[in-house]
């Protein structure tokens, strides 16, 4: 039993077993990567963890508490934040508003408190400023200063990915699920992201689950790698072990035909 673990998780869509009896356990402060060909069920695992799908069987345990059956907003309250493969940002809001929305569950002013935000000393104004300071730290950290007031819809793909990481970070989670954060980024942005993910782990004392296709990135930053195919586990181990595993090579490159 680790800090965060997935136990015998299964879900099927119609006849297709998208995730089939997957178990793994993640230590606190670890960078744990999940790899596998397209359609192998990686994102489905994230959707099961964050409560978007309900598993047919199995459990998602965090600090001894089962997350299965909780709605996504309750899972978030328990300290699990995530990003999406296809970017789910609030397009018609500014970067600032997107990040402030990440602070949503830490804010206490309700509708009435907000409605009567008159003057600097009102409770709502103080709270807005307090959380704005937190958001500015994230903006500094991810170097988003130049796009602070831009609408997310107008940003380049790589920047949007980063804003999504920032929003997840604003939740102050304990566990962060990053779904292909480097997709659509250029080499330079990927290098930066590499450093940031390591920094997030160090500075924010975070446990990170990572889905990635970029093998250089996976090998560079992961503590352990979990390889899967067609909803089932292939192997689990250090990046070097997994890289050499014959089943993984087969899954990615196909069968060797010519000696």
């Amino acid at each position: 039993m680790g800090y965060f673990s997935v136990e015998n998780l299964s879900i099927s869509f119609g006849g297709l077993k998208a995730v089939d009896g997957i178990s793994f356990s993640v230590e606190k402060n670890e960078i744990f990567s999940i790899i596998g060909p397209n359609g192998s069920g990686k994102t489905t695992i994230f959707n099961l963890i964050s409560g978007i799908y309900k598993p047919d069987s199995g459990a998602v345990m965090m600090e001894g508490e089962n997350m299965v059956g909780k709605t996504p907003d309750h899972v978030a309250l328990k300290g699990i934040a995530r990003t999406f493969q296809n970017i789910e940002l609030f397009k018609n809001a500014t970067v600032m508003d997107n990040l402030m929305l990440g602070r949503h569950m830490h804010m206490n002013t309700g509708l009435f408190g907000g409605a009567f935000m008159f003057g600097k000393r009102s409770k709502a104004a103080k709270e807005e400023v307090k959380h704005r300071e937190e958001v500015e730290k994230i903006i500094d950290f991810l170097e988003l200063q130049s796009v602070r007031d831009s609408f997310v819809g107008s940003l380049a793909y790589g920047k949007r990915k980063l804003v999504e990481v920032g929003r997840a970070l604003a939740l102050e989670p304990k566990v962060m699920l990053l779904d292909e954060p480097s997709a659509g980024m250029n080499t330079e942005e990927k290098d930066d992201l590499n450093i940031w993910i390591k920094d997030i782990r160090e500075d924010y004392n975070m446990t990170i689950l990572l889905i990635e296709h970029d093998m250089n990135m996976i090998m560079g930053i992961s503590d352990r790698v979990f390889a899967m195919q067609q909803g089932q586990k292939i192997t689990l181990g250090t990046p070097q072990e997994v890289q050499k595993h014959p089943e993984v090579i087969k899954a990615y490159l196909g069968e060797e035909e010519i000696g």
Partner: peptide, 9 residues
């Protein structure tokens, strides 16, 4: 969906 995963009920 994103609203839900950032904790909005």
């Amino acid at each position: 969906i994103a609203a839900e995963v950032i904790g909005i009920n």
